[in-house]
């Protein structure tokens, strides 16, 4: 898994590439925590190249959501491929996270 971080407006965009699972999610977690510690409370996650996400990966997003909520920021996800969207819908996680079609709509209103 690789993560590239871009800054756009008042947001950090995390572009994740590869599988986010038990083995790679600690890396994602430490990058998210570093951003929040640097007072970056609006996080967008680009899922275009996320090939698989297990519940450890979801837990990392849950922690990011709790951290951003606590600091009155936003966590938004976009461009989820169908297989990942199905996993989210089956566990009702689509009701937990703000999910958008693309970067433009995710940035809107932040």
């Amino acid at each position: 898994m690789e993560i590239a971080v871009d800054k756009r407006q008042n947001c950090a965009i995390l572009k994740i590439k590869g599988d986010v699972d038990l083995y790679s999610s600690p890396q994602a977690r430490s990058q998210i925590i570093a951003l929040v510690n640097n007072k970056q409370f609006n996080l967008l996650v680009d899922f275009t190249d996320v090939t698989y996400m297990d519940s450890s990966g979801v837990a990392t997003l849950v922690e990011a959501l709790q951290l951003t909520n606590k600091n009155k920021g936003k966590l938004r996800l976009y461009k989820l491929r169908q297989a990942i969207r199905d996993v989210f819908e089956l566990s009702r996680l689509d009701k937990v996270f703000d999910i958008y079609e693309d970067e433009q709509s995710a940035l809107h209103g932040i």
Binding site: V58, A59, V62, E63
Partner: peptide, 9 residues
Amino acid sequence: RGRQGMFVT
């Protein structure tokens, strides 16, 4: 009690 985003279905 939540830690590190852990949850349960």
